[in-house]
Amino acid sequence: MNRLVQRFGRLREEGRKGLIVYIGAGDPNLDTTRRLALAFDAAGVDAIELGVPFSDPLADGLVNQLAAQRGLESGTTPGGVLATVKALRQGSHVPVVLYIYYNLIHRYGQERFIRDAAEAGVDGLLVLDLPPEEAGGYGHQMRAAGLCAIYLIAPTTPEERVAGIAKEASGFIYYVSREGVTGMQATVAETIGDMTARIRRHTTLPIAVGFGISNPEQAKAVARHADAVVVGSAVVDRIARGAGRSDLVESVALFVRTLAEGIRG
């Protein structure tokens, strides 16, 4: 069974909220990415979202753009990211989702990428710029490979689109809590409760909320409405600032632990 589906099932049974942490793969290098993922698993993270670096990350704010740039500079390729997930699987069953721009999949060959990702131990794909309208055989190929097709829903998504997306989605629904690119925010949007309620009218899938959540207090506030909280830029920013330090992995994992405790506390 898919590790992501399993984990959300367990969270639901135990009445707990999940924490999903985003990092840019290959920042500062793929071996550190693997060690971070292991440390996050130990710190109580429920799923890891790995950003596959792309030259033109137009949905990302500056922090994640710079992470992608560092990832590319360290020679990170989509194939390299899959190999890293495979290596991670030697010591961890933490669910892994790839956050990826469509051109990378398109170039690799969609069917082959999905097959290789499943084989490497990936659990889901979140393709930023592939709306259901353009997905074609994607949904079928993903189901056949046992991968979750994760879709975004935005504050601008009208109800009939929510219904359509919910039908295509599996694993969880990723609700983008505000209009904008990825990045840290001082406050979280007040509309989260309304929107998650609206989404729940159309699906029983768990809802993860992300974009702009940067500290344990915000994570806790958002977790009231969501099944899981995604924290990205705040973690990526700590990786950037800790680059070159020998305790990078430990110090970032420590922060991630406070997030996990914030959500559960």
């Binding site: 137009l58 949905a59 469509y102 930023l128 710029d129 592939l130 709306p131 309208e133 353009e134 879709y151 975004l152 829903i153 935005a154 504050p155 601008t156 998504t157 009208p158 689109r161 997306i165 983008v176 209009e179 904008g180």
Partner: peptide
């Protein structure tokens, strides 16, 4: 052609 954009832009 087509429409390959993040969800926030689909409705607009």
């Amino acid at each position: 052609g087509g429409r390959f954009v993040p969800e926030t832009l689909m409705h607009p």
